Amino acid sequence: MHLPARNPLSANKLLNSKWTAALPVNKEKHFIVIKVIEPDTPGAPVTEVELQAVHSQRIQTLPWRALRDASVWRQGWV
């Protein structure tokens, strides 16, 4: 499922964005994008980001397009 067209998601606007896990695990509900991972090849599109859990400070890397899945992520802190 994709985000509504009125709020398109793009890799260049993800840094410091806030996200809520639809199904929190280990009290990790709210996350912040702390890094947009630049590809090894110059000019190649960004494919991954690092998210940090606000509660535990745990960092995870995932494909940025995974944030479009509304069954897993909600944009903002809900």
Rank of each mutant, 00 (worst) to 15 (best):
P39D: 10
A70S: 07
Q75H: 05
N16H: 13
I34Y: 06
N16W: 12
L62C: 10
E38G: 00
Q57K: 15
K27F: 03
L15Y: 09
D69N: 15
I59R: 15
V46F: 13
T41A: 11
P45A: 14
T61A: 06
T61G: 03
M1P: 03
Q75W: 03
Q57V: 10
S71A: 08
A66W: 06
L3D: 02
L51G: 02
R6T: 12
A22F: 09
E50F: 05
L14V: 15
P39S: 09
K27C: 04
A66D: 14
E28D: 12
H30A: 10
Q57E: 15
E38S: 13
G43S: 10
H30E: 11
V25F: 02
N7C: 07
G76H: 00
L51V: 05
R6W: 13
L14M: 14
A5D: 11
N16G: 01
V33Y: 03
T41R: 14
V49P: 02
P8N: 03
E28W: 00
L23F: 09
K35R: 14
P24D: 05
R58F: 07
I37N: 08
V72G: 00
P8E: 01
E48P: 00
V54C: 11
K29M: 08
A44T: 08
R6Q: 11
L9W: 12
K13F: 12
I34K: 07
F31Y: 13
S56Y: 13
K29V: 08
R74F: 10
L67H: 02
F31R: 01
